[in-house]
Amino acid sequence: MATNRLVLWDIDHTLIETGGVGREVFADAFSQVTGIPMKDMAEVSGRTELVIFGETLDLHGIPRSDKYFKRFVEIQARGYKERAHELRLRGRVLPGALNALQALGRIAGVAQTVLTGNTKEAARAKIQILGLERHLDLEIGAYGEDDPVRAHLVAIARDRVHLKSGLVYAPDTTVLIGDTPQDVSAGRNGGAYVIGIASGKSSTTNLKAAGADIVFPDLTDSAALIRAITA
């Protein structure tokens, strides 16, 4: 019997780590767009790129501009591609992530995509470079340029999968998996079952306190993860 589930994966510190390459690519793109070296960066954890970029402009006293952000998106994605070898050396797929994606991919009725603060092209570049793209349908994902409010991305992803497949997912058949309290809040407020993964800076206690339905220390127990998703 098919299991009707839409699984929305966070990317950074849930599926992968960039080993510092991500911040360096951001800084380089910021400098190219504004002509000013990046001295400080807005808080990134669990937030969208649209918000992070805007607040980083504020920190440097630079007026916000849609033109800046549009150029930034293009240059940032190109930066990841140009530094692909370095990302493979310094970054990594987190323990258990590949096995979890593969195991879920074998279950009929499970659709897997991403819900991320990354822009679509940056997300695509990172996922491709680290070898996870074929396990995720990136066309139905929701991204950091789609809306500044992360919780709104849940509905955006559901709308995209509906347009592509005709399937309708409700809160009890939508699962968000992330590593920060902000991810948890986005899932709760957006209408999803939330699985916290304590593979980033947040502890299992922090994620439970934020309201996650269930929390795992990492992704290494694929069987337990699948039970949580399909129960």
Score class of each variant (00 low, 15 high):
163 L>G: 08
163 L>W: 09
163 L>T: 11
163 L>K: 15
164 K>E: 04
164 K>H: 09
164 K>I: 01
164 K>P: 02
164 K>F: 01
164 K>N: 06
164 K>V: 00
164 K>G: 07
165 S>H: 14
165 S>K: 14
166 G>T: 10
166 G>W: 12
166 G>S: 14
166 G>M: 06
166 G>D: 13
166 G>Q: 04
167 L>M: 12
167 L>F: 06
167 L>V: 01
167 L>S: 12
168 V>S: 07
168 V>H: 09
168 V>L: 13
168 V>D: 05
168 V>N: 05
169 Y>H: 09
169 Y>D: 00
169 Y>R: 14
169 Y>N: 08
169 Y>A: 03
170 A>H: 15
171 P>D: 05
171 P>L: 10
171 P>R: 05
171 P>K: 03
172 D>Y: 06
172 D>S: 08
172 D>L: 05
174 T>Y: 11
174 T>W: 00
174 T>A: 07
174 T>V: 02
175 V>F: 05
175 V>D: 06
175 V>I: 08
175 V>A: 03
175 V>C: 11
175 V>K: 10
176 L>A: 06
176 L>D: 04
176 L>E: 10
176 L>C: 13
177 I>F: 13
178 G>V: 01
178 G>D: 12
178 G>W: 02
178 G>M: 05
178 G>S: 08
179 D>M: 02
179 D>P: 08
179 D>I: 00
179 D>E: 07
180 T>W: 02
180 T>M: 01
180 T>E: 00
181 P>A: 04
181 P>E: 01
182 Q>W: 04
182 Q>R: 09
182 Q>P: 03
183 D>A: 03
183 D>Q: 02
183 D>T: 02
184 V>Y: 05
184 V>T: 00
184 V>H: 07
185 S>G: 14
185 S>W: 11
185 S>Q: 15
186 A>E: 03
186 A>Y: 10
186 A>F: 11
187 G>P: 10
187 G>V: 02
187 G>L: 06
188 R>P: 03
188 R>S: 11
188 R>Y: 08
188 R>W: 00
188 R>K: 15
188 R>V: 13
189 N>Y: 07
189 N>R: 15
189 N>H: 12
189 N>E: 15
190 G>E: 08
190 G>D: 12
191 G>V: 00
191 G>E: 08
191 G>M: 13
191 G>S: 04
191 G>P: 14
192 A>V: 01
193 Y>N: 06
193 Y>R: 13
193 Y>I: 01
194 V>R: 02
194 V>H: 14
194 V>G: 00
194 V>F: 13
194 V>N: 12
